[in-house]
Write a protein that binds this DNA or RNA. Structure first.
Lengths: 206, 206
DNA sequence: CAGTGTGAAAGTCTTCACAGCT
DNA sequence: AGCTGTGAAGACTTTCACACTG
């Protein structure tokens, strides 16, 4: 066995293709060429064809790709053909906004609980979700088989809370705290830090 | 002239170095080696040295880099040695959370106004900021010389609102709407889409 | 003939490894 | 000794360009 793994950078673009296909589909298109998608996404058509070729031959020569078929294929590849429960850790501004964001549910992610360590917040309800004591996180994660977490706590608390989550079985963390989490290799971490993006952009604003 | 530009991917890492240096500084360190920073950030020391070498020779052989000096140099390179006013467009969940996020002010970004098209929100105050009619955006941007915008409106509205902002003089947009903005080349756009990250991660959660 | 799938070429980015400085 | 700065090597990514197919 040991087939060469698909480069991570390619996997990262699949959700983009999925987004384009969903838009195409709702605008009634049934076939789309790599060139059209490329223009829509602002990348090259060769890249799209090469990326997709890692997973199979999805196109029809001379006419492009069947929109809904390719969309289904990508959903399966990304394991989006089922619902993913997620926990949000941290019920401050970011955690609350994240929990209320409708963009997750519409993609098959179900935010199922919020956790915090502030007694004033525990027991209250935010965006229709109960705020639990963070100490009950491991129990909850195990009981519900949750694998995904979004971490929105202050930087000082992030590392230890992340470890707690991982010890309970969390395998992937979307981290909003502005630091690098140090976690075992089997845990996938992606970071979102708007300040970093702004600092990147100001470089070009001479 | 026409010195070769620094690769964008290198520029994107400078804010990370800045973050590490700030942490080092507040923990009292005065010198730091590329190796220490590398461990802290989870990247290689060679990469840090190579990246920094694009901008000059900042280190001292045998001892590393003077923390506060390098920090100042990076701040200047990224044009963070001054305050940047920013407007937030869209006063929904995301816009409000973004406007309230303390992480911008602490990095020299000053959110100076919120804009929306909902009459029920216009005139109210969110996170201590007045919500303006989006139709007054061009006027405001010109009057205050704002160059940076964060866009947090629904996907359907994003393209046209972005064009409005650009026509008024906005040069860089941090876009939270889940689509690719099509804008003139001189405008810098960076995107934040948490759903994309989640979809990327589920690939690995077989 | 329009458009895919793909080797090969070109381009970009990272790591190596070491001369040279303190 | 300890660590930087950097060419050269290596790894990875994108683009090219065309044989092939419906």
């Amino acid at each position: 066995m040991s087939t060469k793994p698909v480069p991570d950078i390619v996997v990262a673009r699949l959700p983009l293709y999925l987004r384009a296909l969903t838009a195409m589909q709702s605008s009634g298109k049934t076939f789309v060429s790599s060139k059209e998608m490329a223009q829509w996404l602002g990348i090259s058509s060769a890249q799209i064809r090469k990326d997709l070729s890692h997973f199979g031959e999805f196109g029809k020569q001379g006419m492009g790709y069947a929109v809904s078929e390719l969309r289904e294929k990508l959903r399966r590849i990304l394991h989006l053909d089922r619902e993913w429960p997620i926990v949000v850790i941290g019920a401050g501004h970011i955690g609350s906004a994240v929990a209320a964001y409708p963009g997750f549910a519409s993609h098959g992610f179900r935010v199922c609980a919020l956790f915090d360590n502030d007694p004033a917040k525990i027991g209250t309800s935010i965006a229709g979700l109960c705020v639990h004591d963070v100490r009950t996180l491991p129990e909850f994660v195990r009981a519900h088989g949750v694998r995904l977490a979004m971490l929105a706590v202050p930087a000082e608390a992030a590392q230890s809370v992340a470890e707690l989550a991982v010890s309970a079985g969390i395998l992937a963390i979307l981290n909003y705290a502005p630091l690098n989490l140090m976690l075992p290799d089997h845990v996938r971490v992606e970071n979102i830090d708007p300040a970093l993006h702004l600092q990147h952009m100001t470089y070009y604003l001479g």
